[in-house]
Each structure stands twice: as structure tokens, then as C-alpha cells.
Design a binder for these strands. Structure first.
Length: 958
RNA sequence: GCGGGGGUCGCCUAGCCUGGUCAACGGCGUAAGGCUCAGAACCUUAUCUCUUAGGAGUUCGUGGGUUCAAAUCCCACCUCCCGCACCA
């Protein structure tokens, strides 16, 4: 039978919708508030996105069945810059992007044309993603939907930021960014040609002085000031004399431009050619001596200031330039000093000699200053010395410090005396903006930051992280690490969609900062959507009242012009649903969003509203490979749904890995699951409830197993070990069913329909959070008029577990297995089979051994001793192997099994095993006889009976 | 470099915290058989090596150690992946 998944899903979706299944309002029930990080609508969602949402949905559905009033809402994060960049690219007719919209995302032509407007892009993918979520069967309360550019949301964010500012957690500072001088805008990766991330490094400008002028050099290694022997200047470059904040600097003209963007006041005075400076003497700051300015061709005007300080002992370029100069000393008759210049070693590093620069130059076989390998040599020595180097005695008070710690101190020291400054330099210059202009680094003045460096705030975050529930447990430590290294974070930018900073309208609140407490807004959104409140009503006192229960109801009501009962209702709803009970997200959000989420909740809300639990999941791989556009292996979720159906996808994603692992999605697995579901669905029409049958052993067994499976599945669900839970529901149930059917069929029974119905019903109920659509269908085919998503999660009943039957059926299975094994190994075709159960004294001995093992005694010698002293079991002497084998038998079973056997005490093996003849008869068509080892009249031609042990009968096959 | 997570029987994965349940779950793949006109699907069985009696041997990145007992605990090493910021 083939199933029409599309219409099956549609049918149940409509019923859920009609019955308002997932809309939740405050009630007298316990609540459970589960949220997921909302999507950024700049593309349709793919299988990978589906994982987090599916996980959260399963959680929501499970808790609903456990009797909670579950709220699972969804919003859309419009704030941010990527959509802006995309709109610009559409306007510029970017072929690649339009092609992606066309073929991969299948956006209609007329829509693409609208995409020059950023909000249209967001709106389009918003609807696309929402439809996908509905199709996936997510049990979302859509009345609470919103976007982050809704006016009321902005009011809410303004409130949030005023609160943070009141608490001094928003501070102001200066911050460098990649910048397009033409667009007058910061640039990120999306804005550059070739999508280069405009990264930059901080250089320290060190001011050497000559004749009233400053000769600045830029370096990454301020600590090497102690090893400077000379300056390098390019004799052929024309430098500029520039007034920089009341000093006269001699720098390249490129450098002058860079400085302008770093908020320096620049006045260009005149020019000077490099060679005119050669041979001059410059004063070294912080050192009471002078050095010569020497010529070098490796010096480029576009790098740094165009002047370089020379540290030949530790910088390969400098060493080589000096060597080159010495070789050609005859060409510089006016510079007799050059032969006297010697490298000054100031850092010692394991693996290097006195002059590390010389060492690397030898290793890299470099012979002149224009050799490209010098770059590599420089990098190597830099990193080795930075992490492993120590400053020598000739570095004053910094002696003996490691380079990594001294660097920062020395920088501060020189800066403090006014002999240094800071220059930012793009790492991979030139970086070009999409508009074509070359990017620079701009120092944005008065940038706003969230002060995650705040000691007290960090402390608070740490202690809550240690207290809250975090799944999986392994990730808790990572949160603590993040809190430790987090520092000030820019929380506003100058372009993008979003809310303006309330006290400084030039800034827009950045997207990772306006998405940290929005779960509270889901309560508000319902009333915005129902038009009961609007942005005219929502002032700070309203939020104070609803979220913090601060202020006076009457005053709030008149301030906001909302009826007091409405204000009160909203407040009560918030107070009912908050805190967030579970927040789900991918692990990529641990170092940012999830941690900010904790920080901000602690800052703004009272203790009772702090989030209770975070659940983190890994990502999804496609056939073992990372998903990426360039690999072309991104499958839009909606495409996958139309091919495989939502349920199969949900199961495939969840069953392939535990929480934190990357899940692998592959087509074969999905198909397998789909077939399995179809078979199961078929089964659900076969069985009907029935009463009053005579329960046989296998019936009691199946019922007991059901209880055990319910207990195990429930436990796994509570730990969010969904793979494991699914495993029980899909596979362990299956194998139990298989055995049961074999048993009843070989016994030619016809009265078991009710038993299977009971079993299947529980199974379907437990499957419904995972595969909601098909479970509804199964549920209804099993004869239930109501919805399974509204049903109760099965409760395991311990007293329904009959350990006797469990042991009995196990004995049958094991014995059957042994018989098959013997037949396989001996390759005989059996004519008849005889089974011998162990003598009563062996059973006694077994029980003694078992109970002693449970008490922790595994020493075989001790066990034998205690058995011999007991008259009932003294016969053990004649069977030296018995104890060892029995101990092994017992140890090779689970603790559970042992306990269970210990509880049962003894089963009548002879009686149990006689049941086996049904199966033997049906499978081999031969007779089976059972004797006790102690039966003196037994048929035992090969003397096999003596090998019998409890739970391990002896077997004779002829 | 710092921080985090891995390396398991063809592939993907579970087990590791709390040592004996482990030749190690399950899925995929492969092979044989059943069902079928045939196929798909489904079901059964097998899938480290050896074995004419239910057994034995060698395995869980490598090398040591602890223990009656180690995939699991400890130490060292090799190796792969991810994050390191103003970007969602």
C-alpha cells in the first residue's frame, strides 16, 4: 500500500488548525514555555535549520502530553545587515545572487524584482519559512508571531536598552571598523568584492624624533624597541610633512590618508624625498640614544607609515636589509657607520641562537631583501617568539617576562609617555567594497558597547550557569568559558534594519543585542496582533508593570491609554508563562546569542524570570558532508517535505545522532524510515480492542515488556535523548512484536488482537511527538476518535511487570538461539531434539551465586568455598567448571537482568521449555522433548544432561 | 597559541560519566532465503577470524599503566574538526 503523504498531512494539519490545538493561554494547569532561536529570513530554511526546530517541537509535544500547558511561539528576526547587502546586490543586478534566487530558492521573477527593497526580501522568506514550519507540523502558537521591526517591538527594545543603560551596562567607547569611504559605511564580508572579511590588525606607532620632526614607525612588536639599531626609509619615495595634532610628522602620503580615518587632524604641509633623510640621526624614545636613518628598498609607502624601525636581531627583513647594505658599503661613502651596526638581541627563544633572524634566513636560504620568502620567515619568528620567547636582561624592567605578556605592558608604557600611537591596518589589503572603492579602517568615535566585562555581571552569569539545566551536560563548561573571555561588545551600528538607540538616534541597535530577551515579547505580540495594544500604548511604564510588576496600575493605564483590566491581563499572562522553561538552539550560538541571552535576562529580570534550561544541538551533514552552497548539497526543507513527507524527515534527522553530534541526513535512511512508517500504518488497521481473554505466558510477557519500554522511553525523553527514545519506539518495540507474533502464530492462536491493539496504541502515542501526522492517522485507525496529540503520554506501571514471564521468554529465546547455533556449526539436519534442565541443587547453587554477585562477591574461590559448606549444594565438588561458567553467565548480563532473576527466584524450566516445541515443530518440523537432569528415566544416550545449568539447558540434537 | 569536541567492527553512529550487561545497539550497505508473474516494498538470516555441539581467538587512534576484569579509569603521544568577536 502506498500512502499519499501530502494529503494525509494536510488532513491532520487542518484538523489541528480547526481545533486550535496549539494556541495556549494561561490556565490552571502547570505551564511549559519552550522557545527556539528565531530565524533570520534571508533564505529559505534547509534541512539543517529543521533540526533545532524539530527538536523543540518534539519537546513541546512531549510536554503537552505530559499534561503541561505548553507555549511554543515563533518570531522572525529582520534586524541586521546581510539582507541590506542582498538588496543592494539585486539592485546592482548581481548575476550570481539572482541565479541563486532563481534556481535554488525558486523565487518567482516578479518577486526578485521587488528585492531591491530589503524588507521585501525579509517578508518573502519570512512567509516561505513560516509555511515550511507549518508543513513540518510544528506545534506553534501563530497568534504570537512578530518581526523585529514591528513598531511595538522597537518600543520593547528601547525599554530594554534604557534599562541596561540605567544599570550602567551600556557604555561608550571608540572602536575600529572596516569602512568604505565612498559609501560612508562600515563594510562586512557581504559588502566586499569577493566576500573578503575586512579584518585588520593593531599596529603601534613609535615616534622617533629628528630635528623637530617625528619619524613614526608602525610595528606589531613594540617590545622590540629595545633592539632597534636604525631606521629604514625608502630613498625613492616622496614623503609628506604633515601636521598631526600639533606635531610635524614625516610619513608616506598613504599613511596620511589612513590617519585621517583614525580621527587625526591632518594638515599636509610639504614634501620631502626619502633620500634626503638618509644619514640623518633620530632619537629613540624611552632610550637615551640616537640611531641613523638608512636606505632600504623593501620599505613600501603603503605599509604602515612608510618608515620602518630596524630590529635586525629579530626581524628577518631588517637583518637582510642590513646585510645588503654592508655588502654594498662602497656605494654609500657618506655612511661609514653602517659596518659598525650590529644586531642587538633582546629575546631568547628555545631553538634559536643569539640572532634568531639570522637563523631563519639561513633556513629559508634568503639572500636579498626582495626575496618573497621573507614574509614567511617573519611570520614564523613572530609566532615562535610571541608564544615561547622571553625578554633578556637588556630590556630594563621588562626583563624575564614572556613576550606575550610584555607586549601589552610595553605598549601601554610607551603610549603613556606620548611616544606612541595606534594605527590600524587591513590584513589583506587592498579590500574593495562592492561599490569599487578601496576600504580603509575607520575609528568610529563614541561607539556604544554592552559591557560584558563588568565583573559583577560576569559573576552573576557564572553562578546562574552553574545552577540552570543545560543539555547536554558537556556544554555547560563551554558557557563558563565564554563568559570568561567575553568583553565589551559593540551593540549599535550605523546601518541595517532595526531599532534606533533611544538616546542617540544616529545608531541602530545591532542584531545580536536586540534578540536577547525577546521571548518575553511573545506575550505582548498576541495583544499587538489582536489590535488590543499598539505602539501608541506601549511606553516604558507599561513594560515595567508587565515584566517587572513595578508601578501603579491606574497610572500605567492612564499613561498608556489601555484599560486597566487589559494591562492586568497582559501582566498576568507574562507572569504565568515566564520564565522560559527551555530554550533550544544550535551549538554555533553558544559563544554569542545563548550567552548574551543569559547575561541580559539576569540584568533585566528578577530571579524568578531567569531561564531554566538550555538545550543545544549539533548541526546536520548531508551524506556525510558539510552543507554548503558551493557543494550544491543544500536541500530546501520544503522541497524535502514534498518528496519524503514531513514525518520521515523529522525522524531521519532525529534518529541519526544524539544531541550534540552532527546528524547525517541521507536519502536512503529517509526512504527506509518512510517504508517503516507505511508498514506500521498498515498494521494499525488489523487489530481491535478486546476484553476477557485468558492471558498466556507470551501475553504477560508482551505486556511486561510494554511497561518496561514505556519506562525507558519516558526516561530518555526527559533527558532529551531523543535518538534513544526513538530507538525504543521504532526498533525495540518491533523486535518484541516479532517474537510475540512468532509465538502466537506457531501456537495457532487467534485471540491476541486486543493485546496487540493495546501495545500499538502505546507505541503510537509515544511516537506522536516525533511523527505527528502519521501518528494521528494511526491513532484514528486504531479506533480513537480524538487526537493523539491531545492524548496522555503512557504511564509505566511497575506492578504490571511480570518478571517470571520475562525470564521464561528469555529462556526460550536463548535456548532457541543455542539450538540454531549448534545446527549451524555442525551442519547436521536434525531429526529430533532433546533438552535437559538443570538439577534442583544446581538451581540452588545458581541462586546463591547470583545473590552473592549482586552483593559484590565475584571471587570464584570464595564462591566455591561457600557452596561446598552448604549441604544442599555440596555436590558442586563433582562439577568443577560449574561455578566459573555460572559466574560468567551472570556477569554477561545486565544489572537489570540480574535483579530481575533474583526477584523471580526460580522458574519451572521444564514447563517453560515445553512451549518451545511449537516453534521447533513449525521451523524444523521435528519433535522436541524435555527432561530434567535429575530424572532417572530420561533419554540421554550421549550423556549430555550433566552439562545443564540454570537458564542454560543441555541440548541433544540428532 | 587559547578554548571546545572527536578518532569504535565497509559507511554513519550508540556505548565511555557510574569498569563486568561488549564481538560491542541501531541504521545504511552487502549476501542468501521467503513473499511476488516480475519488480519495489516488506519479512527472515548472515555480515572481525576460526570452529562438525551451543565454543575459542583477535579488536574500539597509538604506546604504557591501574584492576580478578578496560572501548569505558589514569599518563604520554599521534591525528581530525569547530570557535576566537561586533557577523547572523
Amino acid at each position: 500500500m502506498t500512502v499519499d503523504w501530502t494529503s494525509l498531512e494536510e488532513k491532520w494539519r487542518q484538523r489541528w488548525h480547526a481545533e486550535k490545538q496549539f494556541e495556549s493561554d494561561p490556565s490552571t494547569k502547570k505551564k511549559f514555555f519552550v522557545t527556539v532561536a528565531y530565524p533570520y529570513p534571508n533564505s529559505p530554511q534547509h534541512i539543517g535549520h529543521g533540526r533545532t526546530y524539530t527538536l523543540a517541537d518534539v519537546h513541546a509535544r512531549f510536554m503537552r502530553m505530559m499534561g503541561y500547558n505548553v507555549l511554543f511561539p515563533m518570531g522572525f528576526h529582520y534586524t541586521g545587515t546581510p539582507i541590506l547587502g542582498m538588496a543592494r546586490r539585486v539592485q546592482e543586478n548581481d548575476k550570481e545572487l539572482i541565479e541563486t534566487f532563481h534556481t535554488l530558492y525558486r523565487v518567482p521573477e516578479e518577486k526578485i524584482r521587488e528585492f531591491i527593497e530589503p524588507v521585501k526580501i525579509a517578508d518573502y522568506f519570512h512567509q516561505e519559512i513560516k509555511t515550511g514550519m507549518i508543513e513540518m507540523g510544528y506545534s506553534i502558537d501563530w497568534r504570537r508571531e512578530f518581526t523585529t521591526i514591528d513598531p511595538v517591538y522597537s518600543k520593547f527594545i528601547e525599554w530594554q536598552f534604557r534599562k541596561l543603560k540605567e544599570k550602567n551596562l551600556v557604555i561608550q567607547g571608540t572602536h575600529p571598523v572596516g569602512w568604505c569611504p565612498k559609501d560612508q559605511n562600515p563594510v562586512s564580508q557581504h559588502d566586499t568584492l569577493g566576500d573578503v572579511e575586512p579584518s585588520f590588525a593593531e599596529y603601534i606607532i613609535i615616534k622617533f624624533r629628528y630635528d623637530g620632526y617625528v619619524l613614526p614607525t608602525a610595528t606589531l612588536r613594540p617590545e622590540t624597541i629595545f633592539g632597534v639599531t636604525n631606521l629604514w626609509i625608502n630613498p625613492d619615495v616622496t614623503y609628506e610633512i604633515v601636521k598631526v595634532d600639533n606635531e610635524s610628522w614625516i610619513i608616506s602620503s598613504e599613511c596620511a590618508t589612513k590617519l585621517e580615518f583614525l580621527n587625526k587632524k591632518i594638515v599636509r604641509i610639504s614634501k620631502i624625498i626619502g633620500r634626503d633623510l638618509v644619514g640623518k640621526k633620530a632619537k629613540v624614545p624611552e632610550r637615551d640614544d640616537e640611531i641613523f636613518v638608512l636606505p632600504a628598498t623593501f620599505v613600501k609607502s603603503e605599509n604602515g607609515t612608510g618608515i620602518v624601525m630596524s630590529v635586525p636581531a629579530h626581524a628577518p627583513f631588517d637583518y637582510q636589509a642590513l646585510e645588503d647594505l654592508k655588502k654594498n658599503a662602497s656605494q654609500h661613502p657618506n655612511l661609514p657607520v653602517i659596518t659598525d651596526i650590529k644586531p642587538v638581541s633582546i629575546i631568547e627563544t628555545e631553538g634559536y641562537g643569539e640572532i634568531p633572524a639570522q637563523d631563519v634566513i639561513r633556513i629559508f636560504q634568503i639572500d636579498n631583501q626582495n626575496n618573497p620568502k621573507l614574509e614567511e620567515a617573519t611570520k614564523e619568528i613572530y609566532s615562535k617568539e610571541f608564544y615561547g620567547g622571553k625578554l633578556k636582561h637588556n630590556t630594563g624592567r621588562f626583563a624575564k617576562k614572556t613576550v606575550s605578556e610584555a607586549k601589552e605592558e610595553i605598549k601601554k608604557w610607551i603610549l603613556a609617555s606620548g611616544n606612541a600611537d595606534i594605527l590600524y591596518e587591513l590584513n589583506e589589503a587592498p579590500v574593495r567594497c562592492r561599490c569599487g572603492a578601496e576600504c580603509v579602517v575607520k575609528l568610529l568615535a563614541n561607539q556604544w558597547f554592552l559591557n560584558y566585562s563588568d565583573r559583577e555581571w560576569k559573576q552573576k552569569a557564572h553562578s546562574w550557569i552553574n545552577e540552570m539545566k543545560i543539555l547536554p551536560e558537556e556544554i555547560r563548561n563551554e558557557f563558563n568559558n565564554v563568559v570568561d573571555w567575553l568583553r565589551e561588545r559593540a551593540c549599535a551600528r550605523q546601518h541595517g534594519l532595526g531599532t534606533k538607540l533611544p538616546w542617540d538616534k544616529n545608531w541602530i541597535i545591532e542584531s545580536l543585542s536586540d534578540s536577547v530577551i525577546y521571548m518575553a515579547y511573545y506575550i505582548i505580540a498576541k495583544y499587538v496582533n489582536s489590535k488590543e495594544i499598539s505602539s501608541d500604548n506601549t511606553c516604558d511604564s507599561f513594560f515595567d508593570y508587565v515584566f517587572l510588576t513595578e508601578g501603579d496600575l491606574k497610572k500605567v493605564s492612564s499613561d498608556c491609554k489601555i484599560k486597566p483590566e487589559v494591562v492586568e491581563k497582559i501582566k498576568d499572562e507574562f507572569q504565568y508563562f515566564y520564565p522560559v522553561n527551555a530554550r533550544h538552539s544550535g551549538r554555533d550560538l553558544v559563544p554569542n546569542h545563548l550567552t548574551f541571552f543569559i547575561f541580559n535576562h539576569l540584568a533585566i529580570f528578577p530571579r524568578k524570570c531567569w531561564p531554566e534550561e538550555i538545550v543545544v544541538n549539533g548541526s546536520v551533514m548531508m551524506d556525510g558532508k558539510k552543507m554548503s552552497k558551493s557543494m550544491g548539497n543544500i536541500i530546501p526543507l520544503r522541497d524535502a517535505i514534498s518528496v519524503h513527507g514531513a514525518d520521515s524527515i523529522r525522524l531521519a534527522i532525529l534518529i541519526s545522532a544524539e544531541l550534540l553530534q552532527d546528524a547525517d541526513f541521507n536519502q536512503e535512511a529517509v526512504r527506509g524510515i518512510k517504508n517503516k512508517l507505511e508498514t506500521m500504518l498498515d498494521e494499525c488497521t488489523k487489530y481491535r480492542p478486546s476484553k476477557n481473554i485468558d492471558l498466556q505466558q507470551e501475553d504477560r510477557w508482551l505486556q511486561s515488556r510494554l511497561q518496561q519500554l514505556i519506562a525507558k522511553t519516558t526516561y530518555s525523553m526527559q533527558k532529551m535523548r531523543l535518538r534513544e527514545a526513538l530507538h525504543y519506539v521504532l526498533y525495540e518495540f518491533e523486535s518484541d512484536l516479532q517474537w510475540y507474533l512468532k509465538r502466537v502464530e506457531t501456537k495457532s492462536r487467534t485471540d491476541f488482537s486486543g493485546i496487540l491493539h493495546e501495545n500499538l496504541s502505546a507505541r503510537v502515542a509515544m511516537m506522536s511527538p516525533f511523527a505527528p501526522y502519521v501518528s494521528e492517522e494511526m491513532w484514528s485507525r486504531l479506533g480513537n476518535p480524538s487526537l493523539v496529540s491531545k492524548s496522555e503520554w503512557p504511564i509505566p506501571v511497575e506492578r504490571k511487570i511480570d518478571f517470571q514471564s520475562i525470564q521464561s521468554e528469555n529462556l526460550l529465546k536463548l535456548t532457541l538461539g543455542d539450538i540454531k547455533n549448534i545446527i549451524k556449526v555442525t551442519k547436521i539436519s536434525p531429526k529430533k531434539i532433546t533438552i535437559y534442565t538443570a538439577s534442583p541443587w544446581k538451581v540452588k547453587a545458581y541462586q546463591k551465586v547470583l545473590s552473592q554477585i549482586i552483593d559484590g562477591q565475584v571471587n570464584i574461590g570464595e564462591l566455591i568455598k561457600s557452596l561446598i559448606t552448604d549441604k544442599d549444594t555440596e555436590e558442586i565438588k563433582r562439577y568443577p567448571d560449574f561455578v566459573k561458567k555460572t559466574v560468567n553467565d551472570i556477569l554477561s548480563e545486565s544489572r537489570e537482568e540480574r535483579e530481575s532473576k533474583n526477584k523471580v527466584e526460580l522458574i519451572d524450566e521444564e514447563k517453560v521449555l515445553s512451549e518451545l516445541h511449537f516453534i521447533i515443530q513449525s521451523e524444523f518440523g521435528i519433535p522436541l522433548r524435555v527432561f530434567s537432569e535429575s530424572d532417572t528415566n530420561k533419554y540421554d544416550p550421549k550423556n549430555k544432561a550433566r552439562a545443564a545449568r540454570p537458564y542454560k539447558p543441555a541440548i541433544l540434537i540428532e
